[in-house]
Amino acid sequence: MDHHQSSSEVTVHHAPGGKEVVQKIIRTTVILSVITLIELALGLGMYLMPNASSALILFIKGVIVILSLLKAFYIVGVFMHLGEEIKNLIMTIIVPLLLFVWFIAAFLLDGSSWRNLRNTNGKSKTEQVVSGSKAEKITPAEGH
């Protein structure tokens, strides 16, 4: 039986870490908690300034999204030990997830285009002669 008491399918064994592994876990826990606290502070910040410009709100939301991706990186890399696997395995997990780049962009753009079409009663921007505020009054209820 192998010294590290592992599966026979594993060729190269990682030595089971000692105290330094526990320290890494504690450090990651602190990082995750701090990121979460920053996210909460930003979320509450948006609540406390109801008159902030939409550009600022969008910026804060963008920061929160990036912080969440950072949390995901730490959970997958450290807690799930993906960072310690061999490169081929990492790639078969990470590369397919790149599909999300298209997935998110295409569908969110579709959603916002849907809103524009509804608000402008199906007319494109060049066809619009009414101002934005008047356009909102044209609701589907006025159709048949």
């Binding site: 078969t92 997935f103 998110i104 569908f107």
Partner: peptide
């Protein structure tokens, strides 16, 4: 991949599950 079969399949299951959740959340976003 230097891992046992069960662990590799758990990773692939989780990847597919990530797409399931991703699809739900993207639908919500849309």
């Amino acid at each position: 991949f230097n891992v046992e079969y069960g662990k590799l399949m758990m990773w692939y299951f989780l990847m597919s599950d990530a797409f399931t959740f991703g699809a739900f959340l993207i639908s919500y976003g849309t």
